[in-house]
Design a protein around this nucleic acid. Structure first.
Length: 260
DNA sequence: ATGCCGTTTCGTAAACGA
């Protein structure tokens, strides 16, 4: 089965592009970020027509995540535990049953955190701490788990065309990378890294300053796999060509193939 | 560089993103 993740930067602006890509790639599950829509306004019917079940956790104007799945949802968790006062829609977790295997799949939109001298960066680090706590608890279930999404983390210098440009950015600060490693060190596998030793494989190119034309990209969209999911991993790809389409998102889809 | 571009909103300029 194929599991994808894609920050679409607005469902209203990206509906036709998303539908075109789903018809082309036909993933079994697709985790979406930055839907920028309330649940009631999400065009679920368009995806149901393609055979998907639709789960959303949206809010007005910003953020918002969703999961599309050809198989029905057994269970949905629309929030990241650990802060009842957090009103930002950045997390949705689904349990999806196959014929033999049950999988737990999360759509994650981790805070950007810039500017770094503002409360936005402390919110990012606190959110990462909550994600680590939740992932640690979920890991003991010993299930196939896929934590998929826009992490807003550049893990290593190999994940940026110009790492020096990001030195003081919330996506690449030492504290950010350290928290990401803590998450990985719970036992998760970075699917792209497990299947490719290449540097310069990016998932985001800014709209500004000709970043796409110059291939000035970064890799910030990740699929992290529990051991039970990593054992079934047979491939991971970045659908880079989608960035060259009309009216593109600034992110592109990342897709894993699992032998289930 | 408080810049670049794109999306959204009780809008028509400002907030947000990365």
């Amino acid at each position: 089965m194929q599991v994808a993740t894609w920050n679409i930067n607005g469902i209203k602006a990206r509906l036709d592009t998303l539908l075109a890509w789903l018809r082309e790639a036909n993933p079994d599950v697709c985790s979406l970020q930055e839907i920028k829509s309330v649940d009631e306004a999400f065009p679920a019917q368009a995806f149901e027509d393609l055979g998907y079940n639709v789960a959303t956790h949206g809010q007005k104007g910003f953020n918002g995540v969703a999961i599309l799945s050809k198989r029905p949802f057994d269970e949905l968790t629309p929030c990241l535990p650990g802060d009842d006062d957090d009103e930002q829609a950045r997390y949705l977790e689904a349990v999806i049953s196959g014929e033999e295997t049950t999988m737990r799949i999360a759509s994650i939109y981790l805070p950007n955190g810039n500017p770094v001298d503002s409360p936005k960066y402390s919110y990012k680090l606190a959110w990462m701490e909550r994600l680590i706590d939740h992932a640690r608890k979920t890991m003991v279930l010993e299930e196939p788990i896929v934590l998929a999404g826009d992490y807003n983390v550049i893990p290593t210098p190999a994940d940026a065309k110009q790492p020096e440009q990001w030195q003081n950015d919330a996506l690449f600060l030492p504290a950010t990378k350290q928290k990401f490693r803590t998450l990985i060190n719970l036992g998760f596998t970075d699917a792209l890294r497990a299947t490719s030793g290449l540097s310069g494989e990016f998932t985001f190119w800014d709209y500004q300053a000709g970043a796409w034309q110059r291939n000035n990209g970064i890799r910030i969209d990740h699929l992290l796999l529990s051991p039970q999911a990593a054992d079934r991993l047979t491939g991971c790809r970045i659908d880079k060509h989608v960035r060259g389409w009309e009216k593109p998102s600034n992110h592109v889809p990342v897709v894993i193939e699992l032998d289930v």
